[in-house]
């Protein structure tokens, strides 16, 4: 079987059998190396070229299958610059036999968003920090995101979301309330005295 060096073959544009090399390159690049047509099944030139192109394409395939994730914390600084929040004064306190645990309202907000977004029927839920305690009064009626007021060992959470079309929104709200209440209680020890759910949109 004759095997030609790839660059020469690509540069010439045609194999000795007359086949267009660009088409063979596309065949390999599209992952169809093994799908030989009638000519290719009997042509040593095409088979050799496909095998060589496939070998040379391996690094590009490696890039294609590599699914890198943004490093932890990479975008936090950028978001902080946008947020311009220097400090979060809002904490919940849990008294225990061995001391006091302070839980930031931001933790409750993030947890509530995480819990709500995993309830079937919730397309996307938002989080937002509002001042509570000694800060400005928290407006839960107008809060269009997940907001949390944390005072002492109690917390009030409001979740605003876009739901998938086709769900019973009343039942969905009840499921979200139950999931968020249970999760916050179990994971923070804070008592969620209210979980307010606002469905802002329904998405097809």
């Amino acid at each position: 079987m004759t095997q030609e060096r790839t660059p020469d073959v690509v540069a010439r544009g045609r194999l000795a059998c007359g086949r267009d090399t660009a088409a063979l390159v596309d065949q390999v690049a599209e992952g169809a190396t093994d799908r030989l047509d009638e000519h290719q099944r009997h042509c040593p030139y095409c088979q050799a070229a496909l095998a060589e192109f496939d070998r040379l394409w391996a690094p590009v395939r490696a890039v294609s299958t590599h699914r890198p994730q943004a490093p932890d914390g990479l975008l936090d600084e950028a978001l902080r610059r946008i947020r311009r929040i220097a400090a979060d004064p809002e904490y919940g306190r849990i008294e225990g036999p061995r001391g006091r645990t302070r839980i930031s309202g931001r933790v409750v907000v993030a947890l509530a968003r995480h819990l709500a977004s995993r309830v079937p029927g919730v397309r996307v839920a938002l989080s937002h920090v509002v001042a509570a305690g000694d800060g400005p009064e928290t407006s839960l009626e107008d809060g269009p995101e997940v907001t949390a007021g944390v005072v002492g060992g109690s917390t009030v959470v409001a979740v605003t979301l876009a739901a998938d079309f086709g769900h019973d929104l009343v039942a969905l709200g009840a499921r979200i309330r139950a999931t968020v209440e249970e999760g916050i209680r179990a994971q923070t020890g804070l008592e969620p005295v209210a979980v307010l759910v606002h469905v802002d949109d329904v998405l097809l």
Partner: peptide, 30 residues
């Protein structure tokens, strides 16, 4: 659709919507 909803809110000044957009697309951007 979810992106559009978030963009609409972010354009209205909602930072939390923007942060959620970033969370959803951070790996893609990187």
């Amino acid at each position: 659709e979810a992106d559009r909803w978030l963009v609409g809110r972010a354009r209205g000044g909602d930072r939390s919507a923007y942060e959620e957009l970033v969370r959803r697309h951070r790996d893609r951007i990187y």
